Computed example of a mutant assay.
Amino acid sequence: MTEAERPTAGATALQLVDGVVFLRPEEQVFEAMLTGWGRQQAARNLASSTIANRDKRVRGFVEHVNAFPWQWSAAMVDEWCADLRSINGVSRSSLRTYQQALRLFCHYLTDPAYGWAGECERRFGTHPVQVCHEWNTAVHVQDNESEPAKRAFTLDEIQAFFDYADDAVLRVRDAGRKGWLAAFRDATMFKVAYAFGLRRTETRMLDTADLATNPHAREFGEYGVLHVRFGKAKPGSPPKRRSVLTVWDWSVEVLEEWITEIRPRMAHASSPALWPSEQSKRISGAALNARFATYRDALGLEPGLDFHSLRRSYVTHLIEAGWDPFFVQQQVGHEHSSTTSIYTCVSSDFRTRTLRRSLDDTLASALKSTTDGGSAR
């Protein structure tokens, strides 16, 4: 067989053997469809987690409507989406990911290159159709679709959060209980995430080797640059890399204490991970989220403050402090300045100070003009 004659990845010819009689044809053909779709997506270099999530959503739709793809209709999608929003409480942006998974699956099944329409017609007397259209699916109409409760920390809130994390270390250690090393790690990790504007995965996946010297800021020593290797990836692409420059002196002190004094005491200190766990070589995302939520709730802060709020706060506080917006954009790895502006949640105090400064400058300029004019006369 030549390369031109080889079936396309995910084609029915690669999933079903001719002449074989299935005991449960509907279920087995559906499973073959999902397997073929998974291989087609893998051929496009999509992440296994993306493929698995889409598979889960399609299976959820089948379970909800109790029908197989060659029996689907647009009305079924309407009912499913209504339940996702009203009963399951799925957010607007999440609803779109559910619909996108179903749309892509239908697109795959109806593409003649994969042969599923003909196979279904032969076996079941009908064939799949596209059931997700512009008129029954959500549209992405604005840049920022996060929930209104999501925001940055104020300066007072971020200080209170870090103070509470530090106090938690002392409370655990003074009580003679295990876990003070883990509490110290988490307190340091939250500070580093804020100090460098990191996402959760970017923080969790750091290694000790990712810290380096900035030749243009030698006062920061070995902690002048943080190399992020697991940045947010585009579909079909590997994680995006970037380098984040150290901007605050205190972050150097925090990192140095952790790496030289505390981290060597961890059970998995031989791991390359910057944040090893007592049970494994690297802390999990679930453990990280749980600790964050515990501290936030203990302080009585709003649920809208999540781990990502540390990144929002980094952007906001740099902008409020007068840092160049393009520099901030480069630090957080945004391709477009409009994306960075979404993250900027400047406080009302900052806006008030900016307005007051502008009004004072205008008044001073007017008074100076009047004085100069009077002198000339």
Rank of each mutant, 00 (worst) to 15 (best):
C106K: 12
E121C: 01
T126L: 13
F105T: 02
E134S: 05
R123P: 02
T126R: 15
D143A: 15
L102A: 09
H133V: 00
W80I: 03
A138P: 10
R122D: 05
P128C: 09
W80D: 01
L104H: 13
H133M: 02
A82L: 09
L109V: 05
L104C: 08
H140F: 04
Q142V: 13
H140D: 06
S93M: 04
W116V: 14
E79D: 11
S94I: 12
R92S: 01
R123N: 03
Q130S: 11
E145F: 10
D83I: 10
F105N: 03
V77G: 07
D111A: 06
Q142P: 00
A138V: 15
A101K: 06
C106Y: 09
E121S: 06
W135V: 00
S86V: 10
E145R: 15
D143F: 14
P112S: 12
L109G: 08
N144K: 08
C132K: 03
H133P: 02
V77P: 04
T110P: 13
L109Q: 09
N144D: 14
R96I: 00
E147S: 11
L102S: 10
L102H: 09
Y108G: 08
V90L: 03
E145H: 15
T97F: 06
W116F: 13
D78N: 10
Q99W: 06
Q130V: 15
V77D: 08
H140I: 05
R123T: 08
Y108D: 10
I87F: 00
V141K: 14
L104M: 12
T110W: 11
A117C: 15
N136Y: 06
Y108P: 07
N88V: 08
R122P: 00
H127P: 05
F124C: 09
H127W: 13
V139N: 00
L102E: 12
C106H: 10
R92N: 01
L95V: 11
S91Y: 07
A101R: 04
Y108A: 10
